[in-house]
């Protein structure tokens, strides 16, 4: 299958340089709709769905291949290659912050700037490191996901929408916006929340912006400080908002911070 189709790649805007947005755990590229359009004037804006999410090719989700975040990073690089893009601004949210970092480490020439939105290199606590979670918390998350897959939840949308005798069901599913296949979501949750990318941090040579929320249970301030220390030359901006999705809760602040960070690129040739 065509790689662009596999990732439901959508391209808008115009500009010599591209800004590529990668969504995090729990939703898809539509998460960027309050932020991405702001860059269409100066950039070619590229949105994509990770395999297993949104309108990507769900059949391509091989649990063995996607047992590590590196596979998703390789996918992102494959999209960049298919579009013949170099020196992009790569914006990754949540788990895709680390996916972006892995991509930049592997092919630095493709990524000129890295924007990490609500990032965390490891969610579980470890000796000398506070990720914020214990393994039992992740089990609870998986349980909460299971409880929401039992039939009344919009996550059943793919099944119910396939029922031609009851088309009215599809319209009623208000939670279907970020619906994914429950088995895939469960696997991706496990891969996300059990990942540990601390060792990959010092390898980064790409200038990075850390965008953190003032109150975010998934990426607490301690984690932001840790990342800032480990990523030499990184900038840390704490956005005055709470929750894990500043691009939805405080889009203007996110746009402003990215604009400020990438401003030097205007005078840098590709």
């Amino acid at each position: 299958m065509d790689i662009l189709k596999r990732h439901n790649v959508t391209i808008s805007g115009s500009g010599d340089r591209a800004m590529v947005f990668v969504h995090g755990f729990g939703c898809d590229q539509r998460m960027w709709r309050l932020v991405a359009p702001a860059f269409e004037g100066d950039y070619t804006v590229v949105l994509l769905d990770l395999v297993g999410a949104g309108k990507s090719d769900l059949t391509a989700y091989d649990p063995v291949r996607y047992n590590s975040l590196q596979a998703h990073a390789d996918d992102v690089l494959a999209v960049l290659q298919a579009l013949n893009l170099r020196g992009v601004v790569l914006v990754g949210h949540s788990v895709s912050a680390m996916i972006g970092l892995l991509a930049a480490n592997r092919q630095p020439e493709r990524v000129a700037r890295l924007v990490l939105v609500a990032p965390s290199p490891r969610y579980l606590n470890a000796p000398g490191y506070t990720g914020g979670f214990e393994p039992a918390d992740i089990d609870e998350l998986l349980e909460a996901m299971d409880n929401n897959y039992l039939g009344w939840s919009g996550t059943m949308a793919p099944v119910i929408m396939g029922n031609p005798e009851r088309p009215e069901l599809a319209e009623e599913l208000t939670n279907s916006f970020c619906a994914t296949d429950p088995t895939i979501a469960r696997h991706f949750a496990r891969v996300t929340f059990l990942s540990d990318n601390r060792a990959d941090l010092p390898k980064l040579r790409t200038p990075a912006l850390l965008l953190q929320c003032a109150q975010d249970v998934l990426a607490p301030l301690d984690v932001g400080r840790y990342l800032h220390e480990q990523l030499a030359g990184s900038e840390l901006v704490v956005v005055d908002t709470s929750g894990h999705c500043p691009h939805l809760s405080a889009p203007q602040a996110v746009i402003g911070a990215i604009n400020h960070f990438v401003a030097p690129l205007r005078t840098t040739p590709l």
Binding site: G24, F25, F133, L141, L142, A144, N148, L218, C245
Partner: peptide, 19 residues
């Protein structure tokens, strides 16, 4: 519960803001 909160932050909260 912590797991529910994780689900809320990664799923319900963004959905509410989106739709």
């Amino acid at each position: 519960t912590m797991g529910g909160r994780l689900h809320y932050e990664t799923y319900a909260a963004p959905l509410l803001l989106l739709q």
